[in-house]
Design a protein around this nucleic acid. Structure first.
Ligand code: FES
Ligand code: FES
Lengths: 148, 148
DNA sequence: TATTATTTCTATCAAATTAATAGGAAATAA
DNA sequence: TTATTTCCTATTAATTTGATAGAAATAATA
């Protein structure tokens, strides 16, 4: 029961993208990879998935790169994780009861269903903006420390 | 972000064990495997883990088998899942901050921490007995249906 | 005591999934 | 025309998960 690197790296990259894009100038994957200490090639894949899910806008060619497609407060963490890891459910049969012949009787399915709902609830109730604000205030506090 | 078969099979087997053990006579792994449509050999592993975690008592030799070590209402689902899948955390650095050099600054870690806590909360607040009662009442309803 | 049924332990193999790399095509601004 | 970027497809590497085999230990039973 772990979040994969795709999900983890992707979320961090979305925060990085939001913080480092000024206006309409796109951000290079290579820059995000450098700042986040990630492989450029692997990050390409991740942004492919984010793009496909409509969370980022891409500009091809020289001086191209990526931009957020929506405002950070309109992007829930659930959307980001779903884009990168698929629909959130702890067991397959929560989404697709047909794969378990005894799904109707199975009490553990109800349990996993309930827990999956909790997880979805949590991730839907936080937006990318929440993380950005946390990040920014944390950085500001770090700076202030030097003046105290 | 999935529960592995170990966790799923193990939980179902604990319910099976609790429901099918009468008094102090132990239950064979082979019987549980039959009823739950699981591989006997694989189930051995699973019970090895449950035993190691002190959730079941084993009786070796002929007419041996397994018994619950505690009353079902004293066994939380968190204990069972932890025994089978290890400590519940969505990313390694939640339990062990040292593996991420920037753990103190990382806002995504706080997020995963929070969500991992929710999951633990949920699984700690339900016991094996809850599932057994659900199962029993479900079976009773099924039986009643024939008499209506 | 010898035999048999049963669990436990360890080692290993197979399959599936995830993570990462590589190379080049397509697009586009300089 | 060139440099720089995303996009696409394939391949490889690493890790995790699922399953098997067989020897050792142990207790009941004949
Ligand atoms: S595990 Fe799928 S229905 Fe029980
Ligand atoms: S991912 Fe581990 S601290 Fe950020």
């Amino acid at each position: 029961m772990k979040i994969s690197t795709k999900g983890r790296y992707g979320l961090r990259s979305m925060i990085d993208l939001a913080i480092n894009s000024s206006g309409n100038t796109p951000v290079f994957i290579s820059d995000i990879a450098k700042r986040q200490h990630l492989s450029e090639k692997y990050l390409e894949h991740i942004f492919g998935a984010l793009h496909k899910a409509g969370l980022v806008r891409s500009i091809r060619g020289r001086k191209g790169g990526y931009l957020l497609q929506k405002n950070p407060e309109e992007i829930t963490l659930s959307e980001i994780i779903t884009a990168l890891e698929g629909k959130i459910s702890l067991v397959e049969c929560v989404l697709d009861p047909d794969i378990c012949p005894s799904a109707k009787k199975c009490v553990t399915r109800d349990l996993w269903q309930g827990l999956s709902d909790k997880i979805n609830e949590y991730l839907s109730s936080h937006t990318l903006n929440d993380l950005i604000q946390m990040q920014k205030s944390r950085e500001q506090n770090d700076t202030l420390m030097y003046y105290i």
